[in-house]
């Protein structure tokens, strides 16, 4: 069962910036335990571009699809047996990243 694990940061109250070593160590553990599928940090939301080609021509918009105080700072994809395992790991991940975590199942 795969879950998208989102790291949520808060522009008005950002998490600490010195988390990389701890996150790397946590990733090593996820790999060793067989849960790791993918991980990646994201560039600032200012760097996003939205494309809408539902109409006659594609419209490009500078910026994220929704402006909000809280935003997606990075993602994991984990492959774990069930939600309890995902939540347990996410509880650790929140400490490790010093940020909120959202766990959402893939279909």
């Amino acid at each position: 069962m795969q879950y998208l694990v989102s790291v949520i940061d808060d522009k008005s109250n950002p998490g600490s910036t010195d988390r990389q070593p701890a996150i790397s160590a946590f990733n090593e553990r996820l790999i060793a335990e067989g849960y790791w599928v993918f991980a990646g940090g994201l560039a600032d939301t200012d760097t996003a571009t939205v494309i809408d080609n539902r109409g006659d021509e594609a419209v490009l918009t500078d910026g994220p699809f929704v402006e909000s105080k809280e935003y997606l700072a990075g993602v994991w994809v984990w492959d774990v047996p069930d939600l309890d395992v995902a939540l347990k790991l996410a509880t650790e991940a929140s400490k490790v990243c010093d940020r909120k975590i959202e766990v959402r199942p893939f279909l």
Partner: peptide, 13 residues
């Protein structure tokens, strides 16, 4: 959908 497991929680939980 989220696969909340149908089992006993682990001893520490």
């Amino acid at each position: 959908a989220a696969r909340i497991p149908y089992r006993m929680p682990s001893a520490d939980d």
